[in-house]
Amino acid sequence: MENILEVNDISKSYKNFSLEHITFSVPCGMICGMIGENGAGKTTTISCIMDMLKPDSGNVHVFGMDYEHAARKIKSRIGLVMDGLDQNPFLYVRDIDKIMRRLYQNWDSDCFSSFLDRFELPLDKRVKDLSKGMSVKLNFAIALSHGAELLILDEATSGLDPVMRDEILALLQEFVMDENHSVLIPSHITSDLDKIADYILFIHEGKVSFYKSRNEIEENYGVLRCGKELFEALSPDDYDAYIQETYSVHVLLNNRQAVEHCFRDILVDPATIEDIMLFYVKGVVR
């Protein structure tokens, strides 16, 4: 399977924060969720992927090309929806089409109109008069109307109600049905990623802590709540992290089938993305 995005060992240092050796790839036809607490480095990573920031070291390849040689080609094939990256509030919704068709060679006005209809966005309203949810829908309509093959959605669904969020998630799944399309979603809403992500990338304090496919997580990862005796009986190779409570230990297993096989009377819950994030941030990582 070809990779639509390859991030190779990128680092970027600031006075109080540094992004260190970020490496991951997003295969074609896949949805990759990026999680991490506030300030972990998600937006810095996205900025490097979008060539808005130049990394101190490492490189980014998108569609097999690099920004040094093909910045325009790459950017014209990426749809970016970012929280805070709204259109100018004084513009009317109808203005967006006029502007975008002058900025993107592949801009499809009919496609944009159909998205406006589908999302029930009024043409005669200024962007500043749209609700948060409507603004997000408008940004989605823009991102999906210029033939983008890679969608990057940075906290994009955070302002949407559950019904609309569900509709957007369905839209994303529809988008990646074409095996040439992929989506990268940095998000705090881990329940959304549980529903649709094929890969999970977890960035913690500027480093990649975890990068696994959802199949691998479903098959191998689980949360075991047990006493100290059972915890001490576990092999350290069977878990990634644990959280010590007053009377029990919560363990993030990475080899649940083997553990369930060894200890037949235990109950292992499936690990959600939120569980994984909490274990890595609050727990003791092996």
Partner: peptide, 18 residues
């Protein structure tokens, strides 16, 4: 003002242009 208050700067950087 549009750049600073409404992220026009960021928007320009995301466009396929030099």
């Amino acid at each position: 003002e549009a750049d600073v208050n409404h992220n026009g700067w960021l928007f320009s950087l995301s466009l396929p242009c030099s």
